[in-house]
Structures are given as structure tokens and as C-alpha cells.
Amino acid sequence: MANSAHIAHPTTTEQNRSDVTQASASLIGRVLLSVIFILSGFSKLAAPAMMIGYIGSVGLPFPQLALALAVVVEIAGGLALILGFRARAVASVLALFSVFTALAFHSALADQNQFIHFFKNIAMAGGLLQVVAFGAGRFSLDARRR
């Protein structure tokens, strides 16, 4: 009679492979989510006067302060998300930021370009909420702190 302990249970090797795959997918997902924030933050630094004008054109108060805040959120938040540092809190902030910017800057949904940007931001918020729900994964600073 065969040992039934191995039947219907993944082997340790299979489980380890699955764990590494999941941790790798989590890291790659965080990197891909972060890239747009980091690039956007640096592009704002490259053309601050234009961005201040754009922020002011949508009626937000204190456009210089809003620009500085956006740059910090995008660059610091993007880097923290890649590293998996306080990933759930960072992903929450970035998700709220994405929804806010969709509503403030891309709400002219009759314009096809704005329609695409609006729903891109909403989709990014959805991806970030996955990080909020499931954490940063094994390949993160959060996992090292436990």
C-alpha cells in the first residue's frame, strides 16, 4: 500500500516554487504600478511652470504647494511601493491620489483622451487596492520587519 500522506498534498518543492512565483509576481506588480508615479513625478520636476499653470487651470488652490505635494507623493510613494516599505499605507495613499487626480484633472469624459486617462487612474487605484488587501509579499521590506 502506498503512503497516502503524499497524495493530494503538494510537495515542499512545489509549494516553495509556488511561494517564489507569488512573491515574484507581487514584486513585479509593485514595480509596474510604481513606474507611472515615478516617471510622472520626475516629469513634473522637469517642467514645473507648466504644471503649476495646469494645476491652477483646474481651479485647485495653491498650485505651487499642490505641485510639491504631487511630486513627493509620486516619487516617494513609487519608490516606497517598489521597496515594499509600509506598502499597504503607501498603496492606500497612491490609490486615493489616483482617484483624486482622475476626478480633478481627467473628468471631461466626452474627450476621448481624458476618458482614457480617467479610467487608467481608476484601474491603477484598483491595482493599488490589491496591495492594500494582500500586502507587499515576501520580497519586500515589510516582510523583513516581521
Rank of each mutant, 00 (worst) to 15 (best):
M1Y: 09
S4T: 14
A5E: 10
A8W: 10
H9L: 11
S18V: 11
D19G: 05
T21W: 12
L27V: 05
G29F: 03
R30D: 09
F37D: 01
S43K: 08
S43N: 13
K44I: 10
A46G: 11
I52L: 03
I52N: 05
Y54F: 15
G59L: 02
Q64A: 13
A66G: 14
L69G: 06
A70Q: 04
V72P: 06
V72F: 10
E74R: 05
A76T: 11
A80Y: 01
L83E: 00
G84P: 08
R86T: 15
A87Y: 05
A87I: 11
R88K: 15
A89H: 02
L94R: 06
A95F: 10
F97H: 12
V99F: 12
F100D: 00
A102N: 04
A102H: 02
A104H: 09
F105R: 03
H106Y: 07
A108W: 06
A108G: 13
D111Q: 11
Q112G: 05
N113H: 06
N113K: 09
Q114S: 14
Q114G: 07
F119V: 11
F119S: 11
F119R: 12
F119A: 12
N121M: 13
M124Q: 10
G126L: 05
L129C: 06
V131R: 07
A136L: 05
A136T: 10
A136Y: 03
G137T: 04
R138H: 13
F139T: 04
F139I: 10
A143C: 07
R144G: 03
